[in-house]
Nucleic acid binder design. Structure first.
Lengths: 249, 249
DNA sequence: CGGACCTTTGAACCCCGTCAAGGAATGTGG
DNA sequence: CCACATTCCTTGACGGGGTTCAAAGGTCCG
C-alpha cells in the first residue's frame, strides 16, 4: 500500500458541503474524533467489499467512488461518488460489513472516524445521531436518482445529468458555483458511473461540447451554459438535499 | 380516496421480514405506536413526491413501489419495492420531504407510525434508534444493487436477478422459501422496475420459462429451478442483509 | 524520444425499443 | 348467458441507439 499517514491537529474549521448539515456546535463535538488523516493517490482501493470496518471516513479533499463488480460489463460499475465534506462509508457504522469497494479517483485526503468513540459520542447526543442518520439518507436519495438516471435516460441526457450533479455537489463542497471545476474523472470513469461504454461517452461529450453546454478536458470541467446543461439533463437539484446555509450569496 | 380505516389492537406478534432485525423486546416497544392501520386497493398513490410527512408506514401485507417521474420513458420508474415486514418511508422521519411517490401494487395493509411519539421513543433508546437507522441503510444497499442491475446487466440476467430478489425478500416475509409465490406485479411493473419495455419483459419471461427457471402467470411466480434462476441472474443475496433469525431450518 | 495511457473516430453489428395488431382473461350490464 | 369493454399479454416486423472491434491520434512524463 502506497498510503501515507499524517497527523493533523486542527479540524476546528468545518468543511463546506454535506457536513454543513451539522451545526457549528455539533461539528465541534465531531471534530475531536478526526485526529488521524490519510492520503491516497488516484486509483487506490481503500476498502474492499466484504470488509468488516471498525471506522468510517470523512472525505476532506479529492474524489472517491463506491464500486461493485459489474454484471456483464468489462469494467466495474460505480454505484456512488463521494465529494469533499461527505462521509464515504458512514453506513458501515451500523451495518459493519461493506457491500462495495471504496476507490479513489483523484489525489485524496480523508479523516478517519473510529466507530467506538463515535458510538459513545452518539449515545450522549440524540440530535447529532439523527443528523448523521440524515446524511446517510441523503446518500440513499442520490442512489435512487442514479437508479432513475441509468434506467430511464438516454445517453445525452444521462451524461448531462451526471455532469450537472457533479457540478452541484462540487459547488456545495466549494461553497460557491464555479465556471471551471477540477475534474479528475477519465471518460472510462464516467462510463462506469453512467452505465455506458467509454466510446459512447466520448461521442456524447463531443455532442455536449458542440451544443455549447460544457467541455471536459485537461482535468477540468468547463461549464459554458449551466442552464442549457440542466435542461438537456433534465436536472433538478432537490434530491441532493443541499444544506440551507450553503450556496448563500 | 377509497381507503378504509380500521383499528387493530394486537400487534404483539412481530411480523417476519425486515423488522426481524429488531429483538423481541425492541418490537414490544415499537408495537404500541402502531395503533392505526390502513387498507388500500392496488394502484393507489398513498403519498406524493414533495409531501412533508409527519408519519411513516410499516407494510403489513401487500406490495408497495417507490416511483419517480421517468426521464425519457413513457411510464414512471420504480426506484424501490417494499415487502411485508419492511418500513416503506422511514427515511421521511429524519428527512421529512419525500422525493418519490408511494404506490400500492397489490391489495395492501399498512400500519402508521407517527413521528412525534417515535421521536420520544427513540430519544430514550439509543440501541433501537440504531436498529431503525440500520434498516434504512439496508434500503440504501438495495438501491445500490438496483443501480448495478439496471446499469450493467442484460435483459435476461436483469429480469432473472429481479425475480430472484423478489423471491428472496418474499421468502423473508414468509419466514420460509416457497415454490409458488403470490405475484401481483404486471409485466409493465417489471418493466418500470428494470428499465425495460413491457414488450421486452414479455419476451424475456418467455425465455426464462423455456429455460426452465420460472413462470410468471395468473398472479403467481412459480420457481421451477431456483439454482438456475440465480445463476442466470448472477444473484447473491448478501446485499439484502436478511436478519439471521430468518430462514432458519 | 519513446512508451503508457487516454481519447477519438470509423465501420459493422445487435440488443432492445417502437409500432402495430391480434389474443386471452376478466368484468359489467342487459 | 352473452355482447362488449377494458386491461393485459403476446407476437411480428422494423429501426435505431449504443456496443463492439479496431486502429490511429493525443498527451503526459520519464
Amino acid at each position: 500500500m502506497t498510503t501515507e499517514q499524517i497527523k493533523y491537529n486542527d479540524m476546528s474549521v468545518k468543511p463546506s458541503g454535506m457536513v454543513d448539515h451539522l451545526s457549528d456546535a455539533q461539528w465541534a463535538k465531531v471534530a475531536p474524533l478526526l485526529t488521524q488523516h490519510m492520503h491516497y493517490p488516484p486509483s487506490e482501493v481503500i476498502s474492499r467489499r466484504g470488509d468488516l470496518l471498525d471506522h468510517s471516513l470523512l472525505l476532506l479533499d479529492g474524489l472517491i467512488a463506491r464500486s461493485v463488480p459489474s454484471g456483464q460489463r468489462a469494467r466495474n460499475t460505480f454505484v456512488a461518488l463521494q465529494f469533499p465534506g461527505e462521509f464515504v462509508d458512514l453506513h458501515a457504522f451500523p451495518l459493519k460489513r461493506l457491500d462495495h469497494d471504496v476507490v479513489t479517483l483523484a489525489d485524496t485526503r480523508v479523516a478517519i472516524v473510529a466507530h467506538e468513540p463515535l458510538r459513545e459520542l452518539l449515545n450522549g447526543d440524540v440530535e447529532l445521531a439523527r443528523k448523521l442518520w440524515l446524511m446517510t439518507l441523503v446518500d440513499a436519495s442520490i442512489h435512487r436518482h442514479w437508479v432513475m438516471r441509468n434506467s430511464a435516460m438516454r445517453a445525452l441526457a444521462r451524461v448531462a445529468n451526471f455532469l450537472s450533479e457533479f457540478d452541484a455537489r462540487m459547488s456545495a463542497a466549494f461553497g460557491m458555483e464555479r465556471q471551471s471545476l477540477p475534474f479528475s474523472l477519465r471518460q472510462t470513469d464516467i462510463a462506469d458511473a453512467t452505465g455506458l461504454t467509454s466510446v459512447h461517452v466520448s461521442r456524447t461529450l463531443r455532442e455536449l461540447r458542440e451544443h455549447g453546454c460544457c467541455t471536459v478536458a485537461g482535468g477540468k470541467l468547463l461549464i459554458h451554459d449551466r442552464k442549457e446543461l440542466h435542461k438537456v439533463g433534465m436536472f433538478e437539484a432537490a434530491y441532493l438535499y443541499v444544506p440551507q446555509s450553503e450556496m448563500a450569496p
